[in-house]
């Protein structure tokens, strides 16, 4: 979680100071959702992500250096600079990609689930999406498909209360996004998305269920983003009191306190871990900055499997 937090905060500091291409949608404050879910996954399980995908990528054990390099749109980035922040993916670790189209990953995850079913493996797919995506047609279509064919997909709604600036209460009439699970005859579970252990527990059950062939579950993680929708958004629509309340329930502070109180780790041990992460982050920035830009003529290289078609 600290790695994700530090990644987002490092990026924030960088793009305030120096040019960095493209928009950034950061998941600061939402780290426990990605980590609590993905800690249950095996290397060959799949994750589909959202436009806010850095945390999903890291939680699925994507390479930190390659992620940072992608932010700088470098050749060494996880997508060779083709997609940037909005499109991070690494199929080698089962991270099937972030997307700039809200809700688009939902049917994709069902399709990945079908491939698992037909190949008869015990893999699962976790499909992350936001509260805003739950109003897209793709949400209904994708979850319905996964439900009728009992596909091994865990739908995880990271409800951070806002679709860009629009508060969730003005765009849905049910109390919870998870309430919509009843329309598909699948379990719908609400969990404190800032409590990594609580997320871990509900995810474990849903993932076991999926591995056993019992079909999908819809988990709603109630959480909050600490920064704007994107780097260009100062989030003035988030009321001060609401912000303060959620900031108190910071998932990282919360978990640190838990570890110390339960004597699982000492303050010093936590500091040591944090120092290691800081060093890795510095190395990632160094790696990214010193990496080459993609060669201009490589613009056409990935359009088709054959490489001789363009121009």
């Amino acid at each position: 979680m600290y790695e994700i937090r530090l990644f987002e905060e490092t990026l924030y500091e960088i793009y305030l100071k120096e040019p960095m291409p493209g928009a950034m949608h950061q998941c600061t404050g939402q780290e426990a959702c990605a980590v609590g879910i993905c800690e249950n996954l095996n290397g060959d399980d799949y994750v589909t992500s959202t436009h806010r995908g850095h945390g999903h990528y890291l939680a699925k054990e994507g390479d930190l250096n390659k992620l940072m390099a992608e932010m700088y749109a470098k050749e060494t980035g996880c997508c060779h600079g083709m997609g940037g922040s909005l499109h991070v993916a690494d199929f080698s670790v089962g991270m099937l990609g972030a997307t700039g189209i809200v809700g688009a990953g939902i049917p994709i995850s069902a399709g990945a689930g079908l491939s698992i079913k037909l190949r008869k493996t015990k893999q699962v797919v976790v499909c992350f999406f936001g509260d805003g995506a739950s109003n897209q047609g793709a949400f209904h279509e994708g979850i319905n498909l996964a439900s009728i064919w009992k596909l091994p997909v865990i739908f995880v709604c990271e409800n951070n209360l806002y679709g860009v600036s629009t508060h969730i209460t003005s765009v849905i009439t049910v109390k919870n996004v998870a309430d919509r699970a009843s329309a598909y005859g699948i379990p719908g579970i609400v969990v404190d998305g800032n409590d990594v252990l609580a997320v871990y527990e509900v995810a474990q059950e849903a993932i076991n269920r999926a591995r056993e062939g019992k079909g999908p579950t819809l988990i709603e993680c109630k959480t909050y983003r600490h920064r704007g929708h994107s780097r260009f958004d100062p989030a003035i629509y988030q009321p001060k009191e609401e912000k303060e309340e959620w900031f108190k329930n910071d998932p990282i502070l919360h978990f640190k306190r838990y570890l110390v109180d339960k004597k699982i780790a000492s303050e010093d041990e936590i500091k040591t871990i944090e120092k290691e992460v800081v060093a890795a982050m510095e190395e990632a920035v160094r790696f990214a900055k010193s990496s080459p830009d993609p060669a201009p003529d490589s613009a056409a290289r990935y359009t088709y499997v054959q490489e001789d078609i363009i121009l």
């Binding site: 909005l86 830009d293 613009a299 363009i310």
Partner: peptide, 16 residues
């Protein structure tokens, strides 16, 4: 522009 999707990298987008 050339017949590809639009890349994010500045060097590639300028080529596009």
């Amino acid at each position: 522009s050339i017949d590809t999707p639009i890349p994010q990298s500045p060097t590639l987008e300028d080529r596009y």
